[in-house]
Design a protein around this nucleic acid. Structure first.
Lengths: 146, 146
DNA sequence: GCTTGATCTCAAGTTACCTTGAGGTTGCAC
DNA sequence: GTGCAACCTCAAGGTAACTTGAGATCAAGC
């Protein structure tokens, strides 16, 4: 492996837009595992740029670092991930986006149904009606959202 | 105003599924402003259930409590919000959902373009290519995402 | 070989969003 | 009028995702 292929942390930070502290933090959380020089400085692979890209994208989709770690842990250890490794993980992300869109569409539909009466209950006004009927007994609606 | 229309905090918690501590916390953050009994206990309006519903829904859409407070502050003070007050605010929420869906669709489209090569850069592989060409000078791509 | 910018570790701080606990008070039913 | 569940305040703790600061070390050019 060519030495020029290894990036110091500052370079990686510049390339990804992340703060150096954030990258170190991610290492702490096992999202990334750089080599070390004899002097204990971190050296990253080029492919780590993509790894960090993945983290940024996945975060945007609302995943927590723990979940992201889970996804990343399916990448091969010891070697730079191949194109098809990334493809596999990209496709999974795509289906997560699909799910998110579906959920939002559902929420929108429910909301539309409620705009008519302004109840905001997301339950076809059941909550609203129940309140109006002064129903104080029974467990009542515990969760406004599914 | 009928006394029976006022709910103690425990009741509100039961009805919304929120923890009592969370409701008190929201009061702290000025998201809700209950009356007090002479003995200093909180008493909520029925319409506060909807207020809390709104908070829960808006949070799901990714709004922070501060932003939610901003929306809620447009509700009339001193009186129970009317149907059309809630309608106005619901419609605004709807457009926020629309925006969110649009953003996700865009992300999905970009991702699709990238799955072909597995680069994950969301920039039509520019990042990937640049790396492969060992371009170490220039500022380089600072932000992987828009 | 020396200087200087980049890097290191480790502890503590930050913001958002709450929960938990201690210690005390209220209010309703009997 | 008493008991006890439900309520109160205030301070501190918890988690996620980082940042900041102190004090020390590394690496690369001159």
């Amino acid at each position: 492996m060519d030495k020029n292929d290894l990036l110091p942390i500052g370079e990686l930070a510049r390339r990804t837009g992340l703060a150096i502290s954030a990258i170190r933090f991610y290492e702490d959380k096992r999202l990334i595992a750089p080599y070390r020089t004899m002097g204990n400085q971190r050296r990253f692979l080029r492919s780590d740029i993509r790894r960090l890209s993945f983290i940024l994208i996945a975060q945007r989709l609302g995943l927590g670092l723990a979940e992201i770690e889970e996804q990343l842990s399916t990448l091969p250890q010891g070697r730079t991930p191949t194109q098809s490794d990334w493809q596999r993980i990209s496709r999974q992300m795509r289906s997560q986006i699909d799910q998110k869109i579906a959920l939002l569409s559902l929420t929108r539909r429910k909301l539309d149904e409620c705009i008519g009466c302004g109840c905001l209950s997301l339950h076809k006004c059941q909550l609203y009606n129940r309140d109006d009927r002064a129903g104080t007994k029974g467990t009542g609606p515990r969760f406004v959202l599914d």
